[in-house]
């Protein structure tokens, strides 16, 4: 499996391969010898197949900004697990079960609300600890199992999301 990148939000797969003391890029079935010669001030010379391109490049964690051929591009090395897991919305079934018995403190959403992954849907209290129940993926609230103040058992159905993502 190659690395999954997004260039300006669009997926592009590639793999960096060791090639003797240097590297080769595997992309779209082609293997190309590649080299990056760093210079001062974030400048560098990229060499592909012996062809040089002057570029400006900075890296922040898994994000790369590169100015090449007169334009800047944002490249993000995606976590393959996160990227592929959310591809068909199947990484999370959209069914949220209570991790432990407890009481609903507050409900932040209503049935029919569109929610984004990570959004807090309700706050529950259990074992004197408050826990935020968050959306496992993007979707629309289909059902809410409990209202504020109600108690529930472990594995009770707290929230379901509609199929769409």
């Amino acid at each position: 499996m190659q690395h999954i990148f997004t260039i300006d939000g669009e997926r592009a797969d590639a793999w960096l391969s060791p090639s003797g003391t240097s590297y080769a890029l595997i992309h779209e079935g082609e293997v190309t010898p590649v080299k990056l010669t760093e210079q001062t001030g974030n400048r560098a010379v990229l060499t592909l197949d012996g062809q040089d391109t002057p570029i400006t490049i900075v890296t922040i964690n898994d994000q790369v900004w590169v100015h090449i051929d007169g334009a800047a591009h944002e490249v993000v090395l995606q976590s393959a697990i996160d990227f592929l897991g959310s591809a068909d919305g199947g990484a999370s079934s959209g069914t949220i079960l209570a991790p432990m018995p407890g009481t609903v403190i507050s409900v932040q959403v209503a049935v029919g609300d569109a929610v984004s992954i990570g959004e807090t849907l309700m706050i529950i209290e259990s074992m004197k600890l408050e826990t935020a129940i968050k959306a496992p993926r993007d979707g629309v609230i289909e059902t809410l199992g409990f209202a504020a103040g109600q108690t529930f058992d472990q594995n009770a159905l707290l929230v379901t999301l509609e199929g769409e993502d």
């Binding site: 793999w15 890029l25 190309t32 990229l46 590169v66 490249v75 090395l77």
Partner: peptide, 9 residues
């Protein structure tokens, strides 16, 4: 390809 090469490197 060049953008990916720069990023990968």
């Amino acid at each position: 390809k060049r953008v990916l090469a720069a990023a990968s490197l």
